[in-house]
């Protein structure tokens, strides 16, 4: 009934199909716009995910084995303590990277968007994005060169330092960063920082500066203005950038593998191992499904809490 009330005044015709069909046709026409992307998504995302889900229901599936979904054993395995530990670690890497990128990236994006001279802005941004033009693998190897036992950083730290010895301080010991979690966090943060800065920049650039003046006018010092106006106003950007970094970090394979050494197994490495080393495709599929769930939850949280002002 309510739809009838809200529709434009039409004579009370019991069959409203003549009115409805042109609208429906137009709607379908617009749906056609989704066609190419829809087929793309269907064939390369939805379908493989469904196949993956089916594989995950086959206990002990090996390559060449019969796909005959019969139970949830693979999922039960996911919740074994060691696998939970791996997931916890993956969340730690992704979350830690997000926090580090946010802490490092926000001031940079803020500075470029609000403080830097306008004519330099694009150049600064390009400069920040420049590392993305090289292979991520190459950048990871560069970090190995820097962080390793005999690497650049340790050479600098342990080289004879006249200031320290003059002050009577002991020399700095070598840092064992490589092959442990700090190296992973460093490598991942470095890799994702440009994305963080770019998205935050886009968000901060749109920030209405009069709001900052208004806050200042109402007695807020710069720190209060930042916390109570700048951050809430750019929250959608912060959430989007954090989510992007978090999700990419959750799926990162290269950094933990190359920088993390022996005790940094992550969910993506574990999945890789199931498919390419131990040939446990069923379990690998179950792990993949769990990873997809984790990411979906993160996105759902963003949609629910990320953007209060836009929701209103």
């Amino acid at each position: 009934m309510s739809t009838q009330i809200s529709s434009p005044p039409t004579p009370p015709t019991p069959k409203s199909e003549p009115q409805a069909s042109p609208t429906a046709g137009r709607w379908l026409g617009y749906l056609g716009l989704l066609g190419p992307a829809g087929i793309w998504l269907g064939l390369l995302l939805v379908l493989p995910t469904l196949v993956l889900f089916e594989l995950s229901l086959v206990p002990g599936l090996e390559p060449g084995g019969l796909v005959n979904p019969s139970g949830l054993e693979n999922y039960l395995r996911v919740f074994e303590p060691v696998n939970l530990l791996v997931m916890k670690r993956s969340l730690f890497f992704a979350g830690g990277t997000t926090v580090i990128c946010l802490l490092l990236g926000f001031p940079v994006a803020y500075w470029i968007a609000l403080l830097a001279p306008t004519k330099w802005r694009n150049l600064l941004l390009v400069g920040f994005v420049l590392p993305l033009w090289t292979s991520s693998l190459l950048r990871t190897y560069a970090w190995i060169t820097i962080l390793r036992y005999s690497g650049v950083l340790n050479t600098l730290l342990t080289s004879p330092n006249p200031w320290l010895s003059n002050l009577g301080l002991p020399t700095i010991p070598r840092l064992e960063l490589l092959n442990d979690w700090p190296a992973v966090l460093i490598g991942m943060s470095y890799g994702y920082l440009p994305y963080m800065v770019l998205i935050l920049y886009a968000s901060l650039e749109k920030l209405d500066r009069r709001l900052l003046e208004a806050a200042s006018d109402l007695g807020a010092n710069p720190i209060q203005t930042f916390c109570q106006v700048t951050v809430p106003q750019t929250m959608p950007g912060i959430a989007a950038a954090s989510l992007l970094v978090f999700i990419t970090g959750l799926g990162d394979f290269v950094d933990p593998e190359l920088l993390g050494g022996d005790s940094t197994m992550t969910i993506s490495r574990l999945i890789y191992n199931q498919f390419l080393k131990t040939n446990q495709w069923g379990f690998g599929s179950a792990l993949s499904m769990v990873l997809i769930m984790l990411v979906s939850i993160a996105i759902a949280l963003l949609l629910k809490f990320g953007d209060r002002s836009a929701a209103s």
Partner: peptide
């Protein structure tokens, strides 16, 4: 003296209200 230490308040052109509040 910065604005937040002045005993004045401003009504801005097109208001500059905080739309997140």
């Amino acid at each position: 003296v910065p604005p937040y230490r002045r005993p004045v308040n401003t009504v801005f052109q097109s208001y500059a209200l905080f739309n997140h509040l």
